[in-house]
Amino acid sequence: MPPRIHSQPLLNCVEQTCLGRPSWQAAASQQCSQFSTTASRELNREQRRMWQWLRSEGRQYRNPKPGGGPNYLAGSTNKPFRHNETFRSQPVLSEEARNKIWSAVMEQGLPLKAVSAKYSVDMRRVAAVVRMKEIERSMQASGQPLARPYAKAVLNMLPQTHLVEGEPEHEPINEIHIHSYTMQQLFLPTPESRKFTRADAAKAFGDHILPAEKRIPLPELVGLEKDLVEGLSREEANRRFMHAAAASEQAIADREARKAREEEENKKRVDSARFEFRFENINAEAVGPNGRSRKGVGWRYGVPFHDRKRAEVKIPTKVE
């Protein structure tokens, strides 16, 4: 593009632009003006307003708070969005809290459920913390650099839980999903004398709906409370709880191991010089009564088979 010459005198123009601009921009435009005949564009009203806000009220958001802690709009401590009261920036686990969880699981050897109940941290979160801490330790051991400055800065901007005495609990740990079957109102006539419990209610919603006792992630906690109600000492109840937690974890581990073993038994491995061929037994009945089940293997007459089609997007659905 040829250089555009502004109708206004150049100096006048530079002066004008300097008024509504941050100092570095003004400095830059002055430097430019010695070499370029193109006048820099004036700021419009909206731009002027924005810069004005950034220099006055918005200044506090430029850098993280000196003392640490969240720095959200309008001075809110946990609501980053003004119009959305329902979304809150909830505390994250601090570095020490993660170390505590890791040490409880890996050094003291407590069951995940026990750690979850002890610190009031979701079981899945406990597992995730330990998993990532292990990666971190292996990276450290192999001398790979960590993002320490980044971690420090980000944690400094977030509300944190340190898992110490007197702190509000990190998160609820006994949550259950609201099943879509239970979202509708159901009128079930029963005699007033009948003891209609949670289990009965579950059955009323559907045969396969489990009662809340069986759906909560930590049913062992209910057992603990029941023991306490029955008058057992705190130590004895705790001992029973730990035993139950460890047993349930062991049961899950056994189930997984059995599943893996069965899968392996179903497979036949043939090792040639270059490849390992794996043959699996396939059940032809898996196609279902109408032959269109998704579990069926291979091409079937009349069923679309997209595997080899052109321009077919094949994003994996899981990574193991």
Partner: peptide
């Protein structure tokens, strides 16, 4: 600059910033 007002981590994620 201006990172702090946007810094929040929703609860369905567990993040380890070090790695």
């Amino acid at each position: 600059p201006y990172m702090a007002p946007f810094a929040f981590i929703p609860r369905y994620l567990e993040v380890n910033q070090n790695i």
